[in-house]
Design a protein around this nucleic acid. Structure first.
Lengths: 335, 335
DNA sequence: TTGTAAGCGTTATCAA
DNA sequence: TTGATAACGCTTACAA
């Protein structure tokens, strides 16, 4: 691997000049620039990014921590983040936090140790205080899908409450009055918010809220099937079911069918997130769109603007969910 | 950020000694080790990985190039790779190649420029020659899901042909004789191999092979639905359909249902890959398991062994697919 | 078992 | 517009 030194020798200029033509950080006479470029080409010179980082104190790398690397959700997010940074010549280092406090901390620690210029975090288990303390340290970061009051300007999130509201509203509009709700783990703020939106919609419709109609799931398929079994065993009559994410909706759909219910004729089901799988179920799942790709891209732009001082169009911090009507929710059949 | 120098001063030892206790690269008296560790703790010292890389000529980073970051398939692969490297203290840099030659080359180029110690590549569009040339350069790499004769010892792949064979065999065993096959893009070697396995099974069963019963799809849902329309329009009678991946199987399933066919009673469908979605379809998709997580892990171990000289259990380069029977394939009903 | 000192390949600050 | 040269923070011979 040729170094900048060999380039400078071949071109008959100094190290500094070669550096200048690479970074055009100060004017260089056209003729010498040509010489240098020729020398670089001849040697097949490629700058050593490590040396550059050490000298410039930037690594051009951004750490990303998500709960899981697989799963439909994070893939879309990482994908849009990577694309945005790639065109900006930055690269992305990834780590998984597995929704566990210790692992999330480890992951952050790990990324910090890698001298990332910035972090994009999708963390769930770590406390608000931890994040506030983190801000005190040197590395800038954005939070995705999390609101920390003291960190407002660096939180990119979805209006989850509105999502829960929209889902419930659809079913009410379709005439359903006997609703069930399968939530995510209620220690997660998004699970809480979605559920609050549900309650709000009920309240606005003048319906009263029955705690027995809530089942706390786990955001996985099992949560959905367990929820169905719960409602059936308790003898709670249901014509429609809201699941706080698509995976649970799929689990619920499968279990309901196994229990002999026709979907959607006997039970309307709506999910949340609009991940790929909502496409694959039968009937196709009605759901609430979570614009995760757009949010990932926005997180990347936040970094480009705040950390690398690139000019960017106005940043958007809060995103709105959208109702996606497919085939799993129908107007309540008149008896 | 405290540096190694400040640690050495506080501990009253030399730089070299601090370095030694960090890397235990040569024996250090227990008492001085204690002193150094105390100093590190007191200062909250964290070694600068960039400086370390520059000096040691290792970056402890591994570049991964996949076709897409989203999608069910690569997520599982990246996930297992990351987990394996994380415990080894290495990190992973990712890039997407989008199954396009130019983008794949760019991606590789990009990762090279990042001074990765090794590359794990899931490339499709780039030529064998390009890869052979790449080997001549300095950076070691493993290929996933690709066989290049000259690069045998660094190819981790699935026996795709066997997969196509197993899928076909199941249907034959179930009494089906009127089979259709929706392949992936036939310029991709895995698509070719899977199809060859299909042909082989037919041949062994003494059935003749009819080119009209092949439809070339795109590995996406659309390919599946287009395939169904093709077979129907051509009036080709089918009792069972093999799709070269699960996504196309899902598309085919949906389209077939829309065309009024009952699945699996009137048409058995089998997929390939066993990605998450095969779980979500209705009926649940029978398919061929592609142990991508295990293969990703193996790729990581390959790197750990070959590049970082860590001892590893024997490496496995070729993986066998496995038949997964679920609900979408049934014994041919007797007329 | 410990210390000294020469790199590693850049960037960045001064001068010229 | 260019050139010297001192960092950047660590690893690693080589000596002691």
């Amino acid at each position: 691997m040729p170094t900048i030194y060999e380039v400078s020798k071949l071109a008959g200029v100094s190290l500094a000049t070669v550096s200048r033509v690479m970074n055009n950080t100060s004017p260089v006479r056209e003729s010498t620039r040509k010489k240098v470029e020729a020398a670089m080409a001849e040697l097949g010179y490629r700058p050593n990014s490590i040396a550059r980082s050490l000298a410039s104190n930037r690594s051009d790398s951004i750490g990303i921590l998500v709960s899981e690397l697989h799963g439909p959700f994070y893939g879309a997010m990482i994908s849009s983040i990577e694309a945005e940074f790639r065109t900006a010549g930055k690269h992305v280092i990834i780590a998984a936090g597995h929704s566990e406090e210790a692992t999330e901390r480890d992951g952050i620690e790990f990324l910090l140790s890698r001298n990332c210029d910035a972090l994009i975090l999708h963390v769930e288990a770590v406390s608000d205080e931890y994040l506030v303390q983190l801000k005190a340290k040197e590395i800038p970061f954005v939070l995705i899908n999390r609101q920390v009051p003291q960190l407002q300007p660096q939180c990119i999130s979805l209006n989850n409450k509105l999502g829960g509201y929209l889902a419930t509203q659809l079913l009410l509009r379709q005439g359903h009055r006997q609703l069930g709700y399968i939530s995510g783990p209620l220690w997660k703020t998004d699970a809480q918010d979605r559920y609050r939106g549900h309650q709000l919609a009920l309240q606005e419709a003048g319906l009263d809220w029955d705690p027995k109609r809530l089942f706390e799931g786990d955001y996985h398929e099992d949560g959905g099937s367990a929820g169905i079994r719960y409602f059936l065993q308790q003898g709670i009559p249901l014509t429609a079911l809201i699941c706080a994410n698509d995976e649970m909706a799929s689990g619920a759909m499968t279990e309901a069918r196994e229990q002999g219910l026709f979907i959607p004729q006997q039970l309307s089901i709506i999910g949340f997130d609009n991940v790929m799988l909502s496409h694959y179920t039968y009937p196709k799942l009605s759901t609430i769109d979570y614009p995760i790709a757009a949010m990932g891209q926005m997180a990347a732009r936040w970094v480009l603007k705040e950390v690398y001082q690139q000019k960017q169009p106005e940043l958007q911090l809060v995103f709105e969910p959208r109702l996606i009507e497919r085939d799993s929710c129908v107007v309540l059949p008149q008896p």
